[in-house]
């Protein structure tokens, strides 16, 4: 029996359901991990873009003060 025969005998109609379950499992795990990130940590991460060129300030238009705002998680 070839691999093609095996796949041909599979019930392909169930594929969308398998895909959905795979996604939901992955989604739930990521959500779990993300929600457990400490707020201070995610705030620090969210502020990274605002701290990256802190000493570039030779003209007014270029100056971009480091953001001090807090992310909502």
């Amino acid at each position: 029996m070839s691999f093609t025969d095996i796949v041909s005998n599979m019930n392909l109609d169930i594929y969308p359901i398998i895909s959905l379950i795979l996604f939901l499992v992955a989604f739930a795990l990521i959500m779990w991990s993300v929600l457990r990130t400490p707020k201070t940590e995610s705030n620090r991460q969210a502020n990274i873009p605002l701290q990256d060129d802190y000493d570039l300030s030779s003209t007014d238009n270029m100056h971009n003060p480091a953001g001090k705002g807090a992310s909502h998680g």
Partner: peptide, 24 residues
């Protein structure tokens, strides 16, 4: 965030956004 001079609204949401999008 650079233009608005404030961090992204929710960094956690951005992570979920990323993985959901990549996966789906």
């Amino acid at each position: 965030p650079k233009a608005a001079e404030r961090p992204v609204f929710s960094y956690k949401l951005s992570i979920i956004h990323f993985w959901s999008l990549v996966f789906i």
